[in-house]
Nucleic acid binder design. Structure first.
Lengths: 121, 121
DNA sequence: CTGACTGTACTAAGAGTGTTAATACACTTG
DNA sequence: CAAGTGTATTAACACTCTTAGTACAGTCAG
C-alpha cells in the first residue's frame, strides 16, 4: 500500500502522512473506507506501531481521517483535503516563481517548461 | 548581510548556505569578492563559528566558493551555480506539475497562476 | 619578525527529535 | 469471552544540530 523512502531525509511518520494523503487524493482510499490498523501497517512497513500512530494522529489533527476507538481509522470527506492541497501547491508555485525571477528566467520560458512537463506521460 | 529564520525547521548552516547562494545569484556578492570571515559572520549572526564553518565547507564542496588558508573565502565563478540553480528549479517544477495533474488542475489553470505570480510586485 | 587576522581541525557536551520497545487500558465486535 | 481496534505512557537509544573551548597553520601589514 505504501513504500517508505529511507533516502528521504524527512521522518517516517511524515512520509506516511503524505503517502496516505496521496492515496486519498488519488481515490485509492475512498471516503469512510477503513485504513489499515496501526499494528497492521506497522508490520507491513516494518516500523514501530508508535510511529504509525503518530502519523494517524497527525492525519486526524488535519481532518483527513477520523478515528473510532475500538473500530479503526476511516477516511474523512476529501473536499477540505483537496482545498488544502490546492492552496499548498499555489504557495509552492509562488515561491518557485519568485526564485525564477531572481534567476532571470522569463515568464515565457517558465510557461514553456510547464507545458513541457504537462505533456509528459 | 544575512538574516536567520528561527521559525524555519531547517538547520542554521543550511540556511546560511542558501542565503549565500541567493546573494551570489542576485549579484550582491561578485565573483572573487571576499565573504565575511568565519568568526565575523558568526558574531554577526550570534551563532557559533563552527556552524558558519560548516556552511562554508558545504559551499566549497558545491563549488560555489573557494577558500585560501590564511586569507579567506571567495566567491567562485557563478556560471555553474546558475546552471545548478536552474536545474534545481526545473526539478521542483516537474514535481509540482505532477502534483497538479493528480489534483486535476488543468494546464490552463496552472499557466494562469504562473502569469499571476509573475505579475506580482 | 611580530601580531592580528585568516581557515581548519578536534574533542566534549548539551539539546532536541525520531524511533523503538514494552506495557497497559478502554472500546468494539463476533 | 477473546481478538482485534485505538490510545497512552515510560524508558532507552541513535542521530543531528549546535555550542564551547582549544589548538595549529597560513597570510599580511606594521
Amino acid at each position: 500500500m505504501i513504500t517508505l523512502d529511507y533516502a528521504d531525509r524527512r521522518p517516517i511518520y511524515e512520509q506516511v502522512v503524505d503517502k496516505m494523503k496521496d492515496l486519498i487524493l488519488l481515490g485509492v482510499l475512498e471516503t469512510d473506507s477503513q485504513l489499515p490498523s496501526v499494528r497492521e501497517l506497522a508490520m507491513d512497513l516494518s516500523i514501530n506501531p508508535n510511529t504509525v500512530q503518530r502519523a494517524y494522529a497527525e492525519l486526524e489533527r488535519q481532518g483527513v481521517i477520523y478515528c473510532v476507538k475500538g473500530r479503526g481509522n476511516f477516511v474523512a470527506g476529501i473536499s477540505t483535503l483537496k482545498e488544502q492541497h490546492k492552496e499548498e501547491m499555489k504557495s509552492q508555485l509562488s515561491e518557485l516563481v519568485k526564485k525564477a525571477k531572481k534567476a532571470d528566467i522569463t515568464e515565457g520560458d517558465f510557461v514553456e517548461l510547464v507545458k513541457q512537463f504537462y505533456a509528459e506521460k
